[in-house]
Each structure stands twice: as structure tokens, then as C-alpha cells.
Nucleic acid binder design. Structure first.
Length: 858
RNA sequence: GCCCCUGUGGCGGAAUUGGUAGACGCGCGGGAUUCAAAAUCCCGUUUCCUUUGGAAGUGGGAGUUCGAUUCUCCCCGGGGGCACCA
């Protein structure tokens, strides 16, 4: 038998699957349905190992479910809008569309070589007008239902490039290209009312029992539901141009007597008004606006404030006033943009109080502590306790005190209990070219008007220039000029495009009927959603997944589908890592250039410089610790690459790519092939029945076969592919053993056929080749999953451990169903055990049938 | 800074509900085969000890338990997310 030629064999079977339409889905079938989806890729240019891992995981699920009798939907598309295409346009003078579609063509070719069980007839890219026109339709539907609105919000503004910067484009407070100091600027932007669904998004998490706990916790924290008190501070005295009240929100109304200041955000209307006649305050606000807009930047910045001179009246203490500061750590977006500070019981407030010499009065004292002696040092006290120094609240616990203050505030008409969310509405406006145009026309007399459905899609103009700073849509000579759909007067198009997260918030539903006229084919969508298994990176744990959940609810709300949750099962896979190499010049070196000398030292093959091995890190182009899937597939074949990414690590954890690992996988591919060659002559004829009487070795092999079916099936269903692989190795080892006597040829054939079927979801090409060599009919891809015989998966004898005081001292071979009494007797009868129990007092014997006997002596 | 995850031999990792720690793979050592090599096959492989046996051992420290990789608390290392990267 000749050596296995992976390349030729893989191409052969890919062509067969393609020609026979093996993986084309009938979405209108009566069969049980299974929708498996991996997060669709951004067409960056070439696939990387992370993609191979992601799609191999989903492919195992798809092929397994197909074998289990499901009609499987496993589509592929492209998340094709986004900034890299515009960056390429600026840097290399290629049109974003050309760049994107070239990349898609490349990556499609690469993915096809992986041999995925994908229905390619459903493929689309989000930048196809046929797709983004439907995104626009949904936008207009949401608009009609009041789920879309426009308001001002802050952005990072690059004053030199005249453009809005993404957070990742702001480096140390400067624009990445221009190097100019970035400013916060307010722009009118479109928002989706995701906060309308905040409670439902939160409640829905409780139904997602096939999601990782950590993702649910992250979403819960992101939504950030809190209950508290919203109340108004009265400003002491009258000041021109200032509203006499400052509404604040607090989750700690119980600490109101510990309040020593009031702080408002730099963007607060009062701050703006006061700054008009106060240059120092104006400076301070501008300073605040120079820090980044990310929460991280705000949290990490030193807590600073500026005293406005304004005072507010304490709601409970007559005559007491609190100074009002503008503070850099108060967010305009959260609550009412104003807080009261209680330094004794909040970290930020305490830092602030120390800096500006404000009173620190503890009003919550841990139970048992002396009220007079209790002091706050450099750490606030945030734990439970009893209220002190707080008039009518003294002695209450924290929760009762909260209730009491809320009660008195609402009785007094100056405050009320409020549920607040950290979640903010979703700003979807982007001042960029390569995105879905927002289908709105601005008319001087009618205001913003939605583009009529008949005029969709609003397509992007092709003749754009990236030479000038700013949004190409905005300075295009003709594109934005149009007529108002409502009054017919001259009007201008909205030149903002949508956040690319909008595109990816409903693509999974479009795959079900990608050519449908309306965005969604309701009946089919209801039949196929939710996606049974969604697979992707944990970096999408919050935004993408939350937005998709919101979209599903919003589409449900407007009657376009009936489900509420888009993804029933979620799996977040780990990254692919590789060691890094640096040469004596400090340059990063590609792994393929690394050579080893006889003494074990490393050098690079091109320049000969010495090389040292560095940390294991996520594969990245900048550190050159990348392996190109094309090279790997070329050298070893797709099956070997798939086998390796599935074998070594649990899929949720990071995978370390190693040369030794891929070599090992390759050896196993060859071994399977050789196994078939060496055993072929010993097999019974195709379809021969297994005789009732079996030799010991034949029975042992049958047991191994059926245990393997049971184990591998369970492992695949639980997505424990590395364990499935380990079991297949074990099973393969047992086949290689000697076999003789009654039923040997039949048991051997059963084992080999089973092995091929078990391996097929992971190494589909090799499996097809082996199947056809075995004389199998049809394609492995169409074979049913093997069934196991429960009786053959259990052993009559089991080994149980005998411990003395929790330490293993002996093991016993006993009947599987031996009862407690006989186990205890057998354990005590053991010679080894006797040496430990002799002369000792046996205090207790714990017996767990089938597992363990523990004798406690003393 | 806040939130979340993670840590087991030389390495990747396994260990139903708390019940024999180290399955399986890699690497390494020894042997077979070969003129030789590659490939392949067989055996061994947590560490330590005065070795028919025993002790220690799952990042570190405490706790619960007859029994802890598994549960609780504190600490340390590594990673992810933080609203305009996708």
C-alpha cells in the first residue's frame, strides 16, 4: 500500500462533495434541524490559524449532527465593512470595495481547502448592496417603531485629520496618524434604543443554560442594573443662568449623612453655563475633555475636580451645605451626570476628599466596632454594618437605611426610587465611507426623513477619494444632494454610515433565506432559529452578542420573527498561540526561519544570526510568531491541521501551535492509513454478520469498539474534542493488538469501520478514502453515526481503591455490583491492609460501591 | 482602576456528583529492525528517599471533610473585556 497522499486525496473528495451538493441545506425540510454557526470572518486578506481552529470546531459539530440524522445548516459569509478597508485605501490607493472583494476571493479559496461541510450557496458579504439594503430596511422599520433616535454624543475628534477616531486610533491621547492632541467633541448621532430592552436582556440571560457562565456574568455586569435614589439638590442662593436644582442618582442613599460634596460631569449643563464667565473652570473642562472617552482612561486618571463656588443644601441637615465640584470621574452618560460624594464609603470619593481636604465622616460602622473609635484611613469601608452619625438612621442596617431614605425622599416629594442601568443606548453613527449608509434624508422643513423602501438600497458611490481629511461621503460632489421624499424640496442625505456591529447583528437570520426579498423569511426563520450552536472568540462576549440579542428582540417586537434569543448554545474558543523568536539584532523572526545547531542553540537560516526563544504569545503579524495555514495544508494536508487544532487543548482554552504537535498529528494520519493496509487482508467480507460465539480477544476488541463509540459521541456532544481525540488514540492502540479465534475477522472489520466513522468529523478526507478502500458504499459524509451496544460498554470486574486514613494502600478487583458489606469484608481481608490495621482501633469505614473503601484508624 | 477567566510531570493536557492524580499525545531514555539513516515497532518515563517499601506532590497559604485538582477565604503569576478594532 502506498503512502497516503493528502493533497491529491483531499482535492479529490472536496470535488466530490461539491459536485454532489453534499452539504447543501434544504431549509424547508421536515427533518429535525440543527443550525451550527461560527462567527463569520472579517476579510482581512488571509486566513490565520485562529480561523482554522474556529471553523474546524464548528465543522465537527456540523458533520456529527448530520450523521445523527439532522438537516444541518452550516453557512459562511463575510463581515465585510470596516476600517481596515479604508486604511488600505489611504495607504495603498486601492478602493475599499476592490480590496475587500479580493480578500474575500482569497480567503474563500483558503477556507475551501480546509474541507469544511459548508453550504456555500448561501454565502454573502455584508458589503453586498443586496445585504446592506436589507440592513437599511431594518433600520427604517426600527425608526418607524421608535427604536431609533438622534441626539448629541461625544466622540474622539482629531482636529488635524478632521475625523472621528476609534478608541484604538487614540494613542496616548493623540491621533495615530496626525499625532495631534485628540479632543472630545459633541456630534449629532443616531442611536438604537437598546435600553428599552435592558430588563429583558438581563432576564433572558437566565434562559441561556448552554452559554458559558462567564459570558453571562460579563453581560450582566455590562447591563449593570442598579436600584437607588434619584433626588434633587437645591442650590443655595440664586445664581444667574443656573437652574436651582441638581438631580443626582445614588445607589447608596444610606450614606447621605456622610456626604461632603456634590460632583457634576464636565459635560453637565451647569458646568457649561458656569464656564462661560469662569476661564479657570473653562480650562479645567477642556482639560477633562482631552482625556480619552474610554472607561479605562477615566478610571485610571487621577481624580481631579474644580470647585464651582456653588453650594447645595443637604436634604436632611438644616443649614448644612455641600460644595459643588466639576469632577473628571463623573460620567455624563451614567445616571444624571451628577453625584454626591461620601468619602468614607467610596474609593473614588475618598481619593477626591483627600486631595481637596474634604470631610471624611464614617456613617456605616461594622457591627461590633465602636462608633467613636471607628476611623477611615486610606481605604474606604464598603462592607455591611450599622448606620451611625446619621440622625434618624442611626442603628439601622444598610438595607433598611436605604429604604428609609428613599421613603422620606418620596414622601417629601424631592426624590424617588429609581432603577438605573449602566447600559447606554447604542450609538450607530460612524463618520466613515465603508459601511452601510444610514437611509435618512435631512430636509430643512421636514427634518430627518427615512428613505422610502422603494428607493433602497441607498448605495455607496464608487468614485470617492481618500485624499482629503474627513468623511468621503460628505465631500463627494453629488452623492448627498437629493430631494426630500416628503416635500420634494432640495435636501441632503445623511452621510454617516452604520457601525459594523449592525451588520453582524442579524446575519445569522439572513443565512436562512439569503435571497429573500424582505430581510427575513419569517416562517423559515422561526423554524431554524435559535442557532443551536454558535462558536466564536470570547472577545465578542459582550458587544456583538448583546447587540445580536437586542436585534432579535427588536425584530420580534416589530413582528418579523417569533424567537427572542438568537443563540441557544454558545461556545467561546481560545486563541492560537506560538512561541516568539528574536535574533541577536533584536528583530522578530518567523518560525519557519528557525534552525537548530548541534548544541541545541538556534539561528536564523537567512542571515545566520543567533536566535533566542521568547514567550508564548497570541499569533500576531507584528511579532512574526505566525504559521500560515496554507503552508501547513500544503505540507501536511487539511486533515492533519484539523486533527492538531482539535487534539491538544480543550477548545475553550488557548492552543499552543508547535512543530512537534503538527508532526505528531501527521504521524497519526499516516498510521491510520497504514493500519488499514496491514489489516485489510484479515477483515471479513463487507456486511458479514458478527457471530454469537467470540474468542476472548475478539470480544475485547468489540468492547473497545463500543466503548469508543459511546465515549467519542459524548465528547463531541459536549464539545470536548481533545478528549474525543484521546479516546480515538486509545481505540486505535487496541486495534493494533493481536487478534485470533472465533469472530476475529468480523470484530476487526467492525472496529476499522467504526474507527473510520468516528474519525470522519475531524479528518473527513482521510475517512472518505479509507471508507472507499474498505468497500463502503456512498460517502462517509452521508453515513449514519454508529450505534453502541450498552452491554458491551460495561465491565463485570472493577478495580476499587482501599485507603487507610485517606491514603491509598491497596486495590481490589471486585464484581461491579459488589455491595457495601462484601466490599468492607474484602478490604479488611487484604494482607496489605491488615499490616496497617493490626493492633489499631478501627474507628470508621466508609464504603462507596464501585469506587472506594476508606478505613479510618487511630 | 473595574469586571471576567486561568494556573496539574520536561511540554499540551486527563480525572461522572468531592472518591486510586498524571489517561492520551509530545518530548526524552533504552531496545528491535537496518550496511547505515529515515520511517516503524516494543519497553520505560511526577519528584525524592538507605528502593520486597515509603514520603511528598495539582501556583502559595489557611479552612471544611473519613477523603480536596474539585468546595470556601486570603495572596501571587498569566490572559481577556471596558461601549468607534472586528
Amino acid at each position: 500500500m502506498s503512502r497516503y497522499n493528502a493533497k491529491a486525496t483531499e482535492q479529490k473528495w472536496q470535488k466530490v462533495w461539491d459536485e454532489k451538493g453534499t452539504f447543501v441545506t434544504d431549509t424547508h425540510t421536515d427533518k429535525p434541524k440543527y443550525y451550527v454557526l461560527e462567527m463569520f470572518p472579517y476579510p482581512s486578506g488571509r486566513i490565520h490559524m485562529g480561523h482554522v481552529r474556529n471553523y474546524a470546531l464548528g465543522d465537527v459539530v456540523a458533520r456529527y449532527r448530520k450523521a445523527k440524522g439532522y438537516e444541518v445548516l452550516h453557512p459562511m459569509g463575510w463581515d465585510a465593512f470596516g476600517m481596515p478597508a479604508e486604511n488600505a485605501a489611504m495607504e495603498h490607493k486601492v478602493h475599499p470595495a476592490d480590496w475587500t472583494y479580493d480578500n474575500i476571493a482569497n480567503m474563500r479559496n483558503q477556507l475551501k481547502q480546509v474541507g469544511l461541510a459548508i453550504d456555500w450557496s448561501r454565502e454573502f458579504a455584508t458589503c453586498d448592496p443586496e445585504y446592506y439594503g436589507k440592513s437599511q430596511q431594518i433600520f427604517l422599520d426600527f425608526m418607524r417603531e421608535g427604536l431609533v433616535y438622534r441626539r448629541e454624543s461625544q466622540v474622539n475628534w482629531d482636529p488635524v485629520d478632521m475625523t472621528v477616531l476609534a478608541n484604538e486610533q487614540v494613542i496616548d491621547g493623540k491621533g495615530w496618524r496626525s499625532g495631534a492632541l485628540v479632543e472630545r467633541r459633541k456630534l449629532s448621532q443616531w442611536f438604537f434604543k437598546i435600553t428599552d430592552f435592558a430588563d429583558d436582556l438581563l432576564a433572558g440571560l437566565g434562559t441561556l443554560d448552554k452559554w458559558p457562565e462567564k459570558v453571562k456574568v460579563m453581560q450582566e455586569n455590562w447591563i449593570g442594573r442598579s436600584e437607588g435614589l434619584k433626588f434633587t439638590f437645591k442650590v443655595a442662593g440664586k445664581i444667574d443662568g443656573i437652574d436651582g436644582e441638581i438631580p443626582v442618582y445614588t445607589t447608596r442613599p444610606d450614606t447621605i449623612f456622610g456626604a461632603s460634596f456634590c460632583a457634576i460631569a464636565a459635560g453637565h449643563s451647569i458646568a457649561t453655563s458656569l464656564a462661560k464667565n469662569n476661564p479657570a473652570l473653562k480650562n479645567f473642562i477642556e482639560d477633562c475633555n482631552r482625556s480619552g472617552t474610554t472607561e479605562e482612561a477615566i478610571e485610571k486618571a487621577e481624580k481631579r475636580g474644580h470647585d464651582t463656588g456653588l453650594k447645595v443644601l443637604h436634604p436632611f441637615i438644616k443649614g448644612e451645605t455641600l460644595p459643588v465640584y466639576v469632577a473628571n470621574f463623573v460620567l455624563m452618560e451614567y445616571g444624571s451626570g451628577a453625584i454626591f460624594g461620601c468619602p468614607a464609603h467610596d474609593q473614588r470619593d475618598l481619593e477626591f476628599a483627600h486631595k481637596y481636604n474634604l470631610k471624611v465622616l464614617p456613617v456605616v460602622v461594622p457591627e461590633g466596632e465602636d462608633v467613636q473609635a471607628f476611623q477611615i484611613g486610606s481605604e474606604p469601608y464598603v462592607g455591611p454594618g450599622l448606620i451611625a452619625n446619621s440622625a434618624f438612621l442611626d442603628g439601622l442596617d444598610v438595607e433598611s437605611a436605604k429604604k428609609e431614605v428613599i421613603q422620606r425622599a418620596s414622601d417629601g416629594g424631592w426624590g424617588e426610587k429609581t432603577v438605573n442601568y449602566r447600559l447606554r443606548d447604542w450609538g450607530v453613527s460612524r463618520q466613515r465611507y465603508w459601511g452601510t449608509p444610514i437611509p435618512v434624508i435631512h430636509c430643512d422643513s421636514c427634518g430627518p426623513v427615512g428613505v422610502p423602501s422603494g428607493q433602497l438600497p441607498v448605495t455607496l458611490p464608487e468614485d470617492v477619494s481618500f485624499e482629503k481629511p474627513g468623511n468621503p461621503l460628505d465631500h463627494h460632489p453629488t452623492w448627498k444632494h437629493t430631494k426630500c421624499p416628503s416635500c420634494g424640496a432640495a435636501a441632503v442625505r445623511e452621510t454617516d454610515t452604520m457601525d459594523t456591529f449592525v451588520d453582524s447583528s442579524w446575519y445569522f437570520a439572513r443565512f436562512i433565506s439569503p435571497k429573500n426579498d424582505a430581510p427575513l423569511e419569517k416562517e423559515a426563520v422561526n423554524n431554524w432559529l435559535p442557532v443551536r450552536q454558535y462558536i466564536g472568540g470570547v472577545e465578542h462576549a459582550i458587544l456583538h452578542l448583546l447587540y445580536a440579542r437586542f436585534f432579535t428582540r427588536a425584530l420580534n417586537h416589530i413582528g418579523q420573527l417569533d424567537v427572542k434569543e438568537p443563540f441557544e448554545g454558545l461556545f467561546t474558543q481560545g486563541m492560537v498561540n506560538h512561541v516568539t523568536y528574536r535574533d541577536s539584532e533584536g528583530q522578530w523572526v518567523f518560525p519557519e526561519l528557525i534552525q537548530t545547531r548541534d548544541d541545541g542553540s538556534l539561528f536564523r537560516s537567512d542571515s545566520g544570526f543567533d536566535v533566542v526563544e521568547g514567550r508564548v504569545e497570541k499569533m500576531s503579524k507584528s511579532k512574526k510568531n505566525v504559521v500560515d495555514p496554507d503552508d501547513i495544508i500544503d505540507q501536511y494536508g487539511a486533515d492533519t491541521a484539523r486533527w492538531f487544532v482539535l487534539s491538544d487543548s480543550p477548545p475553550e482554552r488557548d492552543l499552543q501551535w508547535t512543530e512537534a504537535g503538527i508532526e505528531g498529528a501527521w504521524r497519526f494520519t499516516q498510521r491510520l492509513w497504514r493500519l488499514l493496509g496491514t489489516l485489510e487482508s484479515q477483515l471479513s467480507a463487507w456486511g458479514a454478520a458478527i457471530p454469537a460465539a467470540l474468542s476472548d480477544s475478539a470480544l475485547a476488541l468489540r468492547k473497545a469498539t463500543h466503548k469508543a463509540i459511546k465515549g467519542v459521541s459524548a465528547d463531541i456532544e459536549n464539545l470536548h474534542f481533545n478528549k474525543a481525540v484521546a479516546r480515538i488514540y486509545e481505540f486505535t492502540n487496541s486495534i493494533s493488538g493481536k487478534l485470533s479465534g472465533d469472530g476475529a475477522p468480523e470484530a476487526l472489520r467492525e472496529a476499522i469501520e467504526t474507527l473510520v466513522l468516528l474519525v470522519a468529523p475531524m479528518m473527513p478526507h482521510l475517512a472518505e478514502e479509507m471508507w472507499s478502500n474498505l468497500g463502503g458504499e456512498g460517502l462517509v459524509a452521508n453515513q449514519p453515526w454508529p450505534e453502541f451496544d450498552e452491554a458491551l460498554t460495561t465491565d463485570d470486574q472493577v478495580t476499587i481503591a482501599v485507603q487507610i486514613n485517606g491514603k491509598l494502600r491497596d486495590t481490589l478487583m471486585v464484581s461491579r455490583d459488589a455491595d457495601k458489606a462484601s466490599l468492607e469484608a474484602a478490604a479488611l481481608a487484604s494482607e496489605k491492609i491488615k499490616t496497617f490495621t493490626e493492633g489499631k482501633n478501627i474507628r470508621k469505614i466508609i464504603v462507596v460501591p464501585g469506587r472506594i473503601v476508606n478505613i479510618v484508624v487511630g
